[in-house]
Amino acid sequence: MIEWNQIDSVLLDMDGTLLDKHFDDYFWEELIPEKFSELKKIPLDEAKRQLLAAYRAEEKTLNWTDIEYWSRRLGIDIVALKESICSRVQVHPGVEPFLHFLKQEEKQIALVTNAHPRTVQIKLGQTILTPYFDVILCSSDIGLPKEEVHFWRGAQRVLQFDKERSLFIDDNEEVLLAAHAFGIKYLFFKTHASSRVPRDDSKNFPSLRHFGELLP
C-alpha cells in the first residue's frame, strides 16, 4: 500500500500503462505491414521482415515513436491511418477512478510519454482522461527518449517535481531503470500492458496489474 501523504507528484506513461497496448500492436504489427505490402507490391511476410528490421533500428530513439518520420520512411500517411482506427483505443480498467482519486487528493498529475504529440492528441481524443492531467510531456519536448537518464533531468526542470516525493508508472522496464537511476523514489511496472498478451511481472520493480491496487 502506498503512503499517499508521502507523494506530491504522479507521473504516468500512456501506451500500455493507461491505454491498452493492443492498439499499437495491431497498428504496427498487422495494419502497417498490410499497407506496406500493398504499397511495395511484396508478400506480407517480406513486408513484416523489412518493417521489423526498420523498427529495431530505431528502438530507444526519438524516431521510434515519431509518426512524421515513419510517414516519410514508409510512404504511408500514419496520422490518417491512426485516425481511421482510433475507435479501437481502449483505456485500461481502473484508470479513471485512479485519476479521479489523485485529483481529489490534489496531486500533480503528469502524462509523460515517448509518444508523438499528434498520437497523444488522437488517442486521448477517444477518452475522457485529458482534463485530469496538469501537464502532458512528450519525449520530443525534451529531445530525448525516456530510456535516457538525461531525459529525466529535463523532465524535472519542466515539471518541477521532487523525485523523493514522486510516483512513476510505466510498462517499459528500461524506462523505469532510467527513472530509478535518476532517483525517482516510487516506481511501479504496469503489467498486462496489452489485454491480448499474458501478464508479465517485473523482476526489478513492484508490478501493478490494476490501478485499483493503488487506491487506499
Rank of each mutant, 00 (worst) to 15 (best):
G154K: 11
P145T: 11
Y132V: 03
D201E: 14
G183V: 01
F205N: 04
S207C: 04
S207V: 04
E68L: 13
V175G: 06
A181S: 14
G75A: 01
L159T: 02
D200I: 10
G154E: 07
L187G: 01
R72Q: 13
E68G: 08
S202F: 07
F205D: 02
N204M: 13
K146L: 04
L177W: 08
F168I: 13
R209Q: 09
S194K: 08
L111T: 02
S139A: 15
P131L: 10
L129R: 04
K103T: 03
T113D: 06
Y186G: 00
S139T: 09
D162L: 10
L187W: 09
L144G: 06
N114L: 03
S84K: 06
K123F: 08
V89Q: 01
G183I: 00
K146D: 01
W70Y: 05
F161S: 07
K163T: 03
Y69P: 00
K123C: 11
T113Y: 09
D162H: 13
R118Y: 10
K203A: 14
L111P: 03
H116I: 07
S202I: 08
P206N: 03
F205A: 01
D171H: 12
T127R: 06
K190E: 01
G183L: 01
F205W: 06
V135G: 04
N204I: 10
Q104K: 14
P131S: 07
